[in-house]
Design a protein around this nucleic acid. Structure first.
Lengths: 253, 253
DNA sequence: CGGTGCAGTTGATCCTGATCAATACACCGT
DNA sequence: ACGGTGTATTGATCAGGATCAACTGCACCG
């Protein structure tokens, strides 16, 4: 049980926070925001961009957005909810590759093989903006800003992939994971110290290449060290700097 | 000591093989081959492309091609030799991110931060083709084929990054590593069963997130299992299928 | 020549995190 | 209320690989 005082911020659950911002601010924090709404483009070009955007969803928790091997036609920007991507090796074991939060883009690793190389599964109810990729790359050919945005998105994801590389201790991995999540929420305009873990302990463990039991233990340890408070999946970072410090060797890239 | 009979192939060292092919076939196997020489483009466009290519090197083993934080201006295609990329965390420990063989491209992960996020270090004498990235992306805007090639290269590298993810045993990692190397050599027109390991045991260990001692032990084990023959850094795959089988859980992506 | 330094191999021991197992708890439909 | 199911936590034991250490082979060099 958590003490009563620090619980106060949770009396307004994060989900309401999310909902409140979605309508007003989503597009501003989306990875394509500049392309979609920012000025600087001519009106006709903006119109073209909006033509290739299409809203998709909702998908309920557990539903597949796409599956390994599906033909690649579109990339997805998460509007609300959260998504995990994963592959299943031939022995049937799942490998979680990543989590995607509102404003983030899924599907870029499908460009090369021209098929989705992984599954994307909703962790909770999810809405998307769907961008037709052929249309988008055609547009990119005429709008350098769009092309550059795509290059940068791809390159950025490349940098992210090395986050879980490295032989670091369970504590370091977890600290880096929480700090990364917090940062990503903060960038999108959500609280960077208090948020909901959309994924199960098992998914976290799988992503960090740990056992679920180890995840539990590390989180318990963090709690006794007063680094975090945690009730179920509601997380409060008590000492973000301490966590960042702990995970620094993973985050410095 | 290796038995005399199986050593025969090594009487002609791989390096001569490399040299023989470089002049004639390099461009054909380079990641940019289609862009650089393939037909289908108009002559003026080809001329433009050749304008932005510039030969660089040689760099001797141990020399830096670029360093973390250097401003990003060009991407590099390896012509001869081999390169490792690595980052150094704040405690001064090196983390090897990848190895690059002839025909492969370095520097794509620098697009987003606009600075190189890692060091690139020659493992042996290296020559490059250097492509100005601003010029290249400008060209991409006019030549859809170039744009698509860049997208695909980026996306492909994205898929590669997950090779060393996953909690696999030392044997599996090593088998997957050797199989991957063999495949990449084969794709570029070199022998896929017999090649030179340009990197030290320490670098391999670092890349695979193992201790150097473990690398030694695994390689010894592979040797007694008649999967490979190994003398110094000269490698012969005796049972490529066996190795592939062993590493399959890592390679299936 | 012996000296020095580095890369690699092999052996002995230790520790982190996986695995097996039991329990607690929330949520569900009947 | 009752199981039934899925998720999370905690404890006990075990093993794979890290670490420490000794030793070899080899290149380089004064």
């Amino acid at each position: 049980m958590l003490p009563r005082k620090p619980l106060d911020p949770w009396l307004e659950p994060p989900s309401s926070l999310v909902d409140a911002r979605v309508g007003a601010h989503f597009c501003l924090t989306c990875a394509f925001s500049e392309a979609c709404i920012a000025g600087g483009y001519d009106k006709p070009e903006q119109a073209e961009l909006h033509c290739l955007v299409e809203h998709a969803g909702p998908f309920r928790g557990g539903e597949y957005i796409f599956r390994t091997g599906d033909p690649f036609r579109s990339i997805f920007a998460v509007r609300t909810g959260a998504v995990k991507t994963s592959v299943v090796d031939k022995d049937g074991r799942e490998q979680v590759l990543g989590f995607y939060l509102p404003g983030e883009v899924i599907g870029l690793n499908a460009i090369y093989p021209d098929r989705f190389p992984c599954n994307a599964i909703a962790l909770e109810t999810v809405h998307f903006c769907r961008f037709s990729f052929p249309a988008m790359s055609a547009l990119a050919a005429r709008m350098p800003a769009v092309q550059q945005r795509l290059f940068r998105l791809l390159s950025k994801e490349l940098g992210m992939a090395s986050l879980l590389a490295g032989d670091h201790s369970a504590d370091v991995r977890m600290a880096a994971f929480l700090t990364d999540l917090a940062h990503r929420y903060a960038v999108r305009g959500f609280s960077g110290t208090q948020f909901h873990l959309s994924m199960s302990r098992g998914d976290i463990a799988n992503y960090l290449r740990l056992a679920a039991e180890t995840v539990s233990r590390v989180l318990s340890r963090f709690r006794t060290q007063r680094l975090i408070e945690l009730e179920g999946r509601e997380l409060l970072l008590l000492d973000p700097d301490g966590l960042r410090e702990l995970g620094q060797s993973l985050l410095s890239r």
